Every structure is written in C-alpha cells, then in structure tokens.
Simulated assay, not measured.
Amino acid sequence: MGSNNTRGMSPRQKMINLMYIVLTAMLALNVSSDVLEGFVQVEEGLSRSNQNIAARNNAIYNRLEEFAIQNPSKGQIWFDKAKQVRQRTEKLHQLMDSLKTAIAIEADGPDADPRNLVNQDDLESASLVMLKPGKRRGGTHLRTSIDVYREFLATLFADSVHRANIRAALATEPVAKSGNAMPIPWEESLFEGKPVVAAVTMLTKLQSDVRYAEGETLAALLNNVDAGDVRVNELNAFVIPQSRNVMRGSRYSANIVLAAVDTTQRPVVYINGNRLQNDNGLYETVPGSTGTFDYKGYLEVPHGDGTVTRHDFQSSYTVIEPTASPGCLGALGLTADKLFLECCLVWFA
C-alpha cells in the first residue's frame, strides 16, 4: 500500500500495517508455518482492537442521541447525520464479514469458520472470491463501496485537514509495484496470490480503518453541536438607562443587564455603513448642530464553525446648545465638546 495512506492514522494502525507488510514479504520467501501463525495473531489483535474502537464509537453516538433528545432544535440535525454514518458503516462492515466467510468457505468448505481456518496457506481461494471476473466480483465491489463511503464521510468535515486524513485512511488508489510497468488495481495488490489467512487478516484490518473513520466522523459531529455557539470568557454588568433626561419629580428607569464577552474575538461593528475602527464597540461623534439624531448599524459575530451572524441595532441621541447649564448637561449625560456612545452585544439573563 502507498505511503500516503498512513497519513492521519494512529501509531497503532501504522504498526499493524507494517506487520502485515513484513508478514506478506516473509510469505513470498516461503517461510515456515510460523509466518501463518503470525497472521493469526495479528487477526486476533485486530479483532480485539475493533471491539474497543466500536465501544468508543457507540459512546459518542449515544451522546449525540441523548443531546438530540434533550435539545432537538440544536442536536437533531447532527444526530441525523450520525445515524447515516452508523448505517453506512455497519453495511460496509457486514460486506467485509461476508467476504471473509466466502473466502473461508472456498478454502475449507461449507462449514468453514473465518476465525478458525484449516487451510490457512491456500493461495487460490482469496483470488477466486476477490478477483474472479464477474459482474460483482468481491474486490471490485469492495473498492467501490469504500470509495462511496469515504466520500460521504468527507462531506461531513468542514476542516480540510480532517477530510484529507479520512481520504488517506480509506485510500483505494492503484498501487505501483516493482516489475509492473503500470500501477495495479488496489484489490489486486491486496488479494492476488495471498494465502487465505492473509486475506482474512487484511479484511479485518480494513474493518479497523472503517471503524477509525467512523469514530473521527462521529467526534466531529459531536463537536459541531456547540460549534455555532458564541464562546464567552468574561461577564460584565452594565446599566442601560431608558432615558438620560430626568425631570424633577419624574421616574428614572434603567435595565441592569449581564453582558457576556469574548475578549479574544470581538464582534465587528458597523454604524451607518461604516466600520468602527476599534475593537471595544466605542462609537464617538462630534455633533455639529442641535436636535435629535438617529443612527443604526449591525454587529457581525464570528462562530466556532466558521459562520458569521449579523445582529442589527438602532438608537438615537439628543444634542443641545453648549450654553446650557453644566447641571443640565450632566443630567443628560453629555459634554459640550464631544458625545460618546458605546455599542455592546448583550445577552439578557
């Protein structure tokens, strides 16, 4: 298999690939039955590993299901995608199990058990099942099924790096081999002339790759549940008066609110079509005349999944002549030379 196929794999998977290659090379040298026993041990180890990976994947899947039940509007869309991943994974896993059984039956007869092969060194059965010309020969059907599965998973990743890792882990490109002028099909490189025990072990290894890809995808879907939320790392209290103009004997009203702020990623503020040139939402203007002035704008808030949401706002302010008494200006919360207005994104408790 090509070296590019190891990108994104865990160290354990890389070690398993290397062991398979070494054992196959030893078979080419007609080494004793100890080599066949080596494949049996690798098969057993892979089967145990697959069970552990499946348990981990089930835990992630169950968390997605629980969240969808608790918060359908937020979690159902991701759980629906997880169900598709689970269904496609199980279908592909079952296909590989059926191919193992077919190879074992070809080698040992109708009562064969892929986990307890008798004719482990049979060099023809795997080729007959996987490479025999026909409408649905096993190898071609397996390759096309993996291709469809791989590209489906890739569509569920927003991150190009993770997409590349999934494609590398489930790569089925033709393989260049010494002595061949042209690369040979993926399925031929894995099953042509291989003993039954090696072919069954390879199918178990492919099942491990599929479980790995399933787990990475489910984990990405779980992360997406909260990816669109605004992250906050600071809480501040603000007083927002309904009016700064208070006459004697009248009522003063103000909203006391809690503002959640992400100090590492400020929203971008636009007022009257112009972007504020600071990151703390401070809007300053010097009025040139008296009267009441309206203004409006919007904030653009970035989210963890790469999307940006827009939040519109509008307000107004009143300007009086600078000849007014300082006490009157103070009551209005204004200064004679400059007006300060601050725009805040606020979540009300």
Rank of each mutant, 00 (worst) to 15 (best):
N4D: 12
N5L: 09
N5M: 11
N5Y: 02
T6I: 13
R7W: 05
R7G: 02
G8H: 05
S10K: 03
P11E: 13
P11T: 14
P11L: 01
P11C: 06
R12H: 05
N17S: 11
L18T: 14
L18Y: 04
Y20W: 01
V22S: 11
L23F: 00
T24G: 15
N30V: 08
N30I: 06
V42S: 01
S49P: 03
Q51R: 02
Q51V: 04
N52C: 01
A55E: 15
Y61E: 11
L64A: 12
E65A: 10
E66H: 05
F67T: 10
F67N: 11
A68S: 15
Q70L: 15
N71T: 10
S73K: 05
G75A: 14
G75M: 13
G75Q: 13
F79I: 14
Q84W: 09
V85K: 01
V85F: 10
T89E: 13
L92K: 00
M96Y: 05
L99K: 00
L99D: 11
A107N: 07
D108Q: 12
G109K: 05
P114H: 12
R115F: 02
R115M: 06
N119K: 06
N119D: 09
D121G: 08
E124V: 03
V129R: 02
G134K: 04
R137F: 03
Y149D: 06
E151A: 00
L153W: 01
T155D: 15
V161G: 05
R163S: 07
I166K: 01
L170I: 13
K177S: 08
P185S: 09
W186K: 08
L190G: 06
E192R: 11
E192Y: 12
V200S: 06
T201R: 01
L203M: 06
Q207S: 12
V210S: 03
A220G: 03
D226E: 14
D226C: 02
D226V: 09
G228N: 14
D229G: 02
D229P: 02
V232S: 10
F238P: 00
S250H: 07
N255D: 15
I256R: 03
I256A: 07
L258V: 12
L258S: 13
T263L: 04
R266Q: 14
V268L: 09
Y270Q: 13
R275L: 05
Q277W: 02
N280I: 10
N280V: 08
G281E: 12
G281Y: 09
L282Y: 07
T285M: 08
T285I: 13
V286C: 01
S289C: 05
G291L: 12
F293T: 09
D294T: 12
Y298W: 07
L299K: 05
G306H: 04
T309H: 02
D312F: 03
A324L: 00
P326M: 10
G327Y: 03
L332R: 03
L334E: 14
F340S: 12
E342V: 02
W347T: 13
F348G: 07
A349P: 01
